[in-house]
């Protein structure tokens, strides 16, 4: 039942041309390497890596936010959930099934972009940079969390507001660690806010391993395990909140 809903969500979104992002990414990478052809190989490699990871991050963000929102709030607005809600599927099964369908799509999208990224680097630099796959996998974890957060927001707000809330969470989540570090300089109130944000919001810095990966081929197992558990915990929490609201929600 869960898989039926997941498959339908996956197919619906796939056919809705969301994977055009892959082509845009490929185009961006091609243009970047064309512009960089006169730059020395060492600098070119570093720029292309940053550019590629930023590209995957950007399209992952778009996919998480816009599909995460279309999953629930747009469907409520369009009333395309009504017929399914009356079927013998519980509301939380519907929610989790849809999330899983979207996750499959996110995985497919990031896999394709990751493969294109490696191929492009191979063509430009002449080496396979397989260690970068760890960065790509961490980006997938990051956007799994963000998609769950988008789903949670979309259970109680309009599509536009859900997009706004999710983007705000994303940008704050990218700087909670820095905010926490600097906040005490601005007084005890700011320090408290810094701690609160750090505790409540996901710290997306945990998924950014560009610096760590600059000078090594792999990450310590403990760090990988911590990040996976951290992501799972946030996904679980966000979906639990989404379930709590969704089960009490009326559909007028």
């Amino acid at each position: 039942m869960l898989l039926a809903v997941a498959r339908a969500t996956f197919l619906e979104s796939l056919r809705d041309r969301v994977l055009y992002s892959i082509f845009l990414f490929a185009l961006g990478m091609l243009l970047a390497s064309a512009f960089l052809s006169s730059v020395p190989v060492g600098d070119r490699g570093s720029i292309l890596k940053d550019f590629g990871l930023a590209g995957i991050s950007f399209f992952g963000l778009c996919l998480s936010v816009f599909l995460g929102i279309s999953l629930v709030s747009k469907e409520i607005e369009r009333k395309s959930l009504y017929w399914l809600l009356v079927k013998p599927v519980s509301r939380h099964q519907l929610l989790v099934g849809k999330y899983l369908g979207l996750l499959a799509l996110l995985l497919l999208d990031i896999q394709f972009m990751g493969a294109l990224f490696l191929l492009q680097l191979r063509l430009s630099l002449g080496v396979w940079e397989f260690s970068l796959l760890t960065n790509v996998a961490f980006l997938f974890l990051k956007f799994s969390v963000l998609t769950a957060i988008a789903v949670a927001f979309s259970t109680f707000s309009t599509p536009t507001l859900s997009v706004l809330y999710t983007l705000v969470t994303y940008f704050i989540g990218n700087s909670t660690a820095r905010f926490r570090a600097f906040a005490p300089e601005y007084g005890p109130g700011a320090a408290f806010a810094g701690e609160l944000f750090y505790l409540l919001l996901p710290n997306f810095d945990n998924f950014d391993i560009r610096k760590e990966m600059l000078h090594r081929a792999s990450l310590p197992a403990a760090q990988v395990l911590f990040t996976v558990v951290y992501a799972l915990a946030y996904v679980f929490l966000a979906l639990a909140v989404a379930r709590f609201i969704f089960e009490r929600r009326e559909f007028n």
């Binding site: 197919l11 619906e12 056919r15 809705d16 369009r78 009333k79 395309s80 009504y82 017929w83």
Partner: peptide, 8 residues
């Protein structure tokens, strides 16, 4: 006025 998944 039912709405279903339009791409299925």
């Amino acid at each position: 006025s039912p709405q279903f998944y339009t791409y299925l």
